[in-house]
Design a protein around this nucleic acid. Sequence first.
DNA 1: ATCGTTCTAGAATAATTATTCTAGACGGAT
DNA 2: ATCCGTCTAGAATAATTATTCTAGAACGAT
Lengths: 197, 197
Amino acid sequence: MARPKFADADFLDAALAIAAERGPLAVTIGSITERLKAPVGSFYHRFASRDVLLGELWLRTVLEFQQGISAALDAGDGLGAALHTPAWVRGHLDEACLLLLYHRDDFVQGGWPSSLRDGVAAQTARMEGGFARFARLVFGRSGRDELRRAQFLLAEMPVGAVRQHLLRREPPPPIVDELIRITYRAVVDDYHASRSR
Amino acid sequence: MARPKFADADFLDAALAIAAERGPLAVTIGSITERLKAPVGSFYHRFASRDVLLGELWLRTVLEFQQGISAALDAGDGLGAALHTPAWVRGHLDEACLLLLYHRDDFVQGGWPSSLRDGVAAQTARMEGGFARFARLVFGRSGRDELRRAQFLLAEMPVGAVRQHLLRREPPPPIVDELIRITYRAVVDDYHASRSR
DNA sequence: ATCGTTCTAGAATAATTATTCTAGACGGAT
DNA sequence: ATCCGTCTAGAATAATTATTCTAGAACGAT
C-alpha cells in the first residue's frame, strides 16, 4: 500500500453523490467509507469531523454556483443572472440538489466549525453584494424595495421554478426559463411603471 | 393520577413547536416527552412510532393549508388562491415553517407508515386536482403547459416569495403579496397573448 | 369491593453513529 | 539499512435515540 490511496476530493465527491441521492442526513462516515471502500481512519486523517467535511462540501458548491451569477452581473446582464439558475442546474444536477433542495444547516449537525465560519460569512456577504449590484443595475438604486425585488428575481423565484425538477433529478425543461423570463420582465417593468406614477 | 393526563393533540402540538423552532430532526421522543413532562410510555401508548407521529402532524398540517386554496378555487378566484400562501403563513407561522421549509420526507425517517399511505396519496391527488382546476379556471384547459404554469403560480412562486421570512420566523410583508400579484398577472397575460399569436 | 381497561412511569434494551485508538505498511531521507 | 512522517486498517468506545418491557395507579362497570 503506497502513500495516497485516496484524495481529499474523493471523500467530498462521495459525500456529494450520497447527499444528492438520499439527502444530507444519509451522509455518514459509514456510508462514505463504504462507497469509497476506505477505512474510517483515512477519513479522519483528512477531515476533523463530519461537520467539517459537509461544511466544506457546501461551501465549495455554493461558491461555484455564485460565480456564474457574478459573471452575468459583471456583464451587465440581469436576465442572464436570473437564468443562471436553470442553466447551472442542467450542468450540475447533483450539486444543485445539494444546494437548492436543502438548507445550509441541514448539513452540519452541530454548529458550523469555526474553521469555516469566515468562509460562510464571506459567502453571505458576496450574496448580499450580488443582490445590491443587481438592484443598482436594473433599478438604479438599492433601497429596501429594490433589494427585495432583486432577491425575488435572482434567488427565490428561479429556485422555486426549478425545485420540482430537482426532486425528480431531471434537468429543468425550457418552460422554466420561459417562466423566469416572463416574471423577470414583469417585475422590472412594474418597478419602473410605479416610479413614473 | 387520573386517566387522561395528556391528549393525543398535546404530543402533536409539542412536536409542531419543536419542529418549527429547531427543525424536524430535533423532534425526538426525548424532546417531546421532556417538553410535555410526559413519560415515554404515554407517547407509545398513543403513537405506534415516531414516524407515525410526524407523518400525522405533516398530514394534518397540509390538509389545513390546502383547504384555503380549495376554497378560493371554488369561488373562482385564481389570484386569491395564489395569495393564500402569504395569508395563511401570517396566521400560522409554526405550521408554515413545518410545511414550506421542509420536504415531506424530512419528517419520517423510515418510509411512510402504511397506515398513512392512503392519506398521503389522497393529499397528492387533491393537490394535483387543484392545479388542474386552477388551469381550467384561468387558462381554459389543463394540458401540460397549463399545468406547469398552474404549479408555478399556485405553489412554487408563492412559496419561494415567503421562504426567507419563514426562515426568520417573521410574517411576510406586503411586498410579498405585491410580487405574487405582479407575477400572476404577467404569466396569465402572457399565456393568453401567446395563444392569440 | 373487585376487576379490567386505560394510562402513567421510567428503567432496560438495541441499533446507529461519530470519534478515538492502536497497529502496521510504505517510501523517501539519512 | 534504519528511521520518520504520512497513511491505511479496522477494532473499541461513547453518545444519542427509538423502542420495548415491567409496574402500578385511577376510574368505571359489575
